[in-house]
Design a protein around this nucleic acid. Sequence first.
DNA 1: TAAATTACGCACTTTGAAGTAAGTACTACC
DNA 2: GGTAGTACTTACTTCAAAGTGCGTAATTTA
Lengths: 125, 125
Amino acid sequence: MKHLAKDECGFATALNAIGGKWKTEILWEIALAPRRFGALRRLLPGVSEKVLAQQLREMEADGLVRRQVFPGAVQKVEYSVTDIGRSLNDAVCVMSAWGKAQERRMVLRPVVGQEKPRPLIRLRA
Amino acid sequence: MKHLAKDECGFATALNAIGGKWKTEILWEIALAPRRFGALRRLLPGVSEKVLAQQLREMEADGLVRRQVFPGAVQKVEYSVTDIGRSLNDAVCVMSAWGKAQERRMVLRPVVGQEKPRPLIRLRA
DNA sequence: TAAATTACGCACTTTGAAGTAAGTACTACC
DNA sequence: GGTAGTACTTACTTCAAAGTGCGTAATTTA
């Protein structure tokens, strides 16, 4: 792995794209299959409609997801992953593999109370 | 790349390790060479002593960083990267490369003034 | 002797992403 | 007619990470 100069580093850019609380999960879900807004709501228990809409709009602006409105009586909007989104998902998977390998060693900080063991972010590997 | 089950994904673990605002930069700097506390302060303009000390302690607890106190008249503490830290840095570089490649396309959101884009990462509780 | 450097610790404040709750507008079903 | 589902938007609140500023204690330099 080559060292990049500090100001040539694109990590901030990558985090800017994936840094939202639900973005990796959104990316994961729509990478599995195109999903509608309501389907994503149900697939990501705990996400609010506000944040879901917000992060989808940002990801669309970043070219990670495609938003398609289908004509018809009832509203139908479908979100799918773009090639760029898929490539980001792949990059995320490298970090994911690292995390998986180090899992036992790490000090898992937050986890207050008896909240679900540790809701992990899903993605491709 | 193979699909991992949701609860087998280690991305949260990775973010837990590198998610602090300054951690990637700290890792980067000490990966170049072992650094003393004061040197890091100067190398990361804008970091507060509180946060620097805090994140170094967390990274030490996570095994990313080694802290060595040198005996002598003046206090001297040196921070260096561990093998684990270096491996994380490599993983980070993959995302960094992605970011570098996509940089022009991305919508760099806020970025007030001349500050660099540095989004925070938040995990699910 | 006063000031600066070393590596922090502690208490308080700020900030902004995310959460909460409500509203919109259209359709569909009973 | 009333309730439910579609895909959102908007105003307000919460809370923890990060920022601010001051304290410490030994030593070294001017």
